[in-house]
Design a protein around this nucleic acid. Structure first.
Lengths: 137, 137
DNA sequence: GTTTTAATTGCAACAATGATGCAAATGTAA
DNA sequence: TTACATTTGCATCATTGTTGCAATTAAAAC
């Protein structure tokens, strides 16, 4: 889906900053940090504008944050946009990339009596296939 | 285990700030935020000291952070100290508390070819038994 | 195409937080 | 009690999240 369509769907104004952020995230096959997105973005935006664009896109659940070790922040398109189910995230300890594992659904957890779950976040850390290959060569 | 013993085990100096932080976290039956810990702490410590104590305790894996929605930060004793297995965390959307679900082990996820996992973090969001009870009354 | 209106931008400014250098204070072991 | 290494508190700075406001821009109405 094109950035314009996504923005329209939520009645958000089509500004170049928002459109750019969505385009960059869509094009990437991994979650990107704020800086990685800024670098790939055409045009230079004020810090505040950039920050507010993210905030808006998050509020409307177009993108979502993934945090690793409470430091590294990466962004990816949200399920509501990609139409996929709740999925696990994978963080590679080698190359520090984050990927949405669309084929790895979040499992159901059996909670103690009285607890009810609404949503579950799963972050798997390890070595990605890319880095594994490089090690074997 | 007493705070002193924990510090000794890692050859960390027994300072009142470190000891206090560990004591407060140990006494609580839920994960606490930095402010919650500071409030319960006897004595007043400089912002930097407090911050550095946390950093040290985290480095030595005595405590660990749990982040919810990338905003709320809570701390709990680490597995290496409590001797428990990798467990899920539960965040209550009502009372905003975080608990270590020691009885809810992290499940194994089947990753795509080439990926290997080292560690998995699970955060389950929902309603805790306390809040559920209050609603039913 | 022009006008109108509401949302967005860029800027200034501030708060909160993470981080470091350094002298004074403290914990630990000799 | 002394000696040494670590930690503390303070000053200071960088980064990041946030808001108010006037200027600008997007979208809708004409």
């Amino acid at each position: 889906m094109k950035a314009v369509d996504i923005l329209n769907r939520y009645n958000l104004k089509r500004t170049s900053c928002r459109e750019g952020i969505i385009d960059v995230i869509t094009a990437a096959n991994q979650a990107l940090s704020e800086n990685e997105i800024r670098e790939q973005l055409v045009g230079n935006y004020d810090r505040t504008t950039f920050y507010r664009s993210f905030k808006t896109l998050e509020e409307y659940k177009i993108i979502h944050k993934i945090i690793v070790d409470n430091q590294l922040v990466k962004y990816a398109l949200d399920n509501t946009v990609t139409q996929k189910d709740e999925h696990a995230h994978f963080y590679c300890n080698e190359c520090n990339t984050v990927k949405c594992m669309n084929d790895v659904p979040v499992q159901k957890y059996q909670l103690p009596d009285g607890y009810s779950d609404v949503e579950t976040e799963v972050l798997i850390k390890g070595i990605c296939s890319n880095c594994k290959n490089q090690k074997n060569n």
